[in-house]
Every structure is written in structure tokens, then in C-alpha cells.
Computed example of a mutant assay.
Amino acid sequence: MPQFDPASFVSQLFWFGVIFTLLYFAVVRPTLPKVGKVIDAREAQVGGDLDRAEAAKGAADTLRADHETAMKAARDAAQAAVAQARETAAKASDAQLKALGARLDADAEAAAASLELALGSARAGLETTVAELTSEAVAKLVGIEITPADVSAAIAAR
């Protein structure tokens, strides 16, 4: 193999330098600035994307904070409305209970008065009936005529 011959090392090194220089100037030199521009453009795009992402994150954080504040205010308002409704319902319930209690008390008093009247009427009827039956019984058993008024007077005297 001729490339391993030490006598041809100098000519191989010479041609290596010439080919390298030609390739460097023919390929690398024209393309290196283009690659640099692409890298710079990509860095600028990535930087811009990061800046926009940071701005979007800040806006999202602001929106989230506003949303949480609005939700807290809405929760507080709802709790206040529920408390107010409970208080109103409790007052209405107390008023209805008082009205119902008053009506029941009035009904109970009316029923007691009606019962007392019925009891008085029943007692009066019972006394009249007892007096009549007693006068008839005495007349049949003993043969003495006693009026129901005399029997009522005797019962009242006791």
C-alpha cells in the first residue's frame, strides 16, 4: 500500500493541505456564514418564544388571580344570601308558629267553653231527669206523690 510508504509521506501531506484548503474555501467558507445566520435566527426565535411564553404565563397568572378573587366574592355573596334567606325563613317560621299557637289556644279556650256549656246543660238535664225519675219511683214504691221540684230541693240541700 503506497500510503504507508514513508517516502511518500511528504507528498501526501502536501496534497492533503492543498485539498483541505480548497475544500475549506470552496465548501466551508461560503456555508459558514449561512449556518451562523440560521443559528442566530433560531436563537432569536427561541428567545422571542420564551419572552412570549413568559408574558402569557404572567397574563394567565393575573387572570387566575382575578378569577379566584371573583370566585371568593361570589362565594361570600352566596353565603350571605343563604344566611339572609335562613334568617328570613326563621322569622317567618316563628311568626307562623306564634299565629298557630294563638289560634290553637283560642280553639282550646272555645272548646273548653263549649265543653263547660255542654257539661252544664248535661247536668241540668240530668238533674231534671233524676228528679222526675225519683218522684215517679217514690210514687210507685212508697205511694207518696212528690214533685220533681221537691226532689231537686232535697238534692241541692245535701
Rank of each mutant, 00 (worst) to 15 (best):
S8L: 15
V130G: 01
Q12I: 14
I155W: 00
Q45M: 08
S11C: 15
A110P: 02
E109F: 04
V10Q: 10
D66Q: 09
F4D: 15
L115F: 12
V38L: 11
V138D: 01
A26L: 13
A99M: 03
I146D: 00
A154V: 10
P6C: 09
T69E: 14
A83D: 10
R52K: 09
L100R: 06
A80M: 01
L63E: 15
P148L: 03
K57H: 09
G47C: 06
A41N: 13
L119W: 10
L126D: 10
A78M: 15
T69A: 15
A149Y: 00
A26T: 11
S93T: 08
L23I: 09
S8G: 12
K34D: 09
A110S: 06
M71C: 05
D49K: 05
S114I: 04
L104T: 00
E43I: 13
K72R: 11
F25L: 11
L100T: 07
V82H: 12
T88G: 04
V18E: 03
D107L: 02
R52N: 07
A83F: 04
A85Q: 07
A137D: 14
A131E: 01
R64P: 03
A102G: 04
A73C: 06
A44N: 04
G47Q: 08
K57D: 03
A131V: 08
A102W: 02
R103S: 02
V46S: 03
D94K: 14
H67L: 15
Q79D: 14
A44P: 03
L13T: 13
K91Q: 13
A139W: 00
A139E: 06
L13K: 11
A106C: 02
W15N: 08
L115Y: 12
D40N: 11
S121W: 05
I155P: 00
D51C: 05
S11K: 15
A65Q: 03
A26G: 15
K91V: 11
T129Q: 14
K72H: 06
A122M: 07
Q84A: 13
L100Q: 12
R75K: 15
F25Q: 08
A124Q: 13
L22A: 08
F9S: 12
Q84L: 11
E109Y: 09
G48N: 10
K57A: 08
A122F: 01
A108T: 04
Q96M: 05
G120I: 05
Q12T: 11
D40K: 07
L126H: 14
A53V: 07
Q12M: 12
P6W: 02
P6R: 03
D76M: 11
A70K: 13
A81C: 00
A53Q: 09
Y24H: 06
T21A: 11
T31Q: 11
R123H: 04
F14P: 04
I144T: 10
A55S: 08
G58M: 02
K140Q: 13
A95G: 02
A81V: 01
A139R: 05
A153D: 12
V35I: 15
E132Y: 06
A83N: 04
F9D: 13
V35M: 14
K98T: 05
A111R: 09
V151M: 00
I146V: 10
A139F: 03
F4E: 15
A89Y: 09
G58V: 01
G101E: 03
V130K: 01
I19P: 01
A81D: 08
K140H: 14
K91F: 06
T129V: 10
R103I: 01
D150V: 11
R158Y: 05
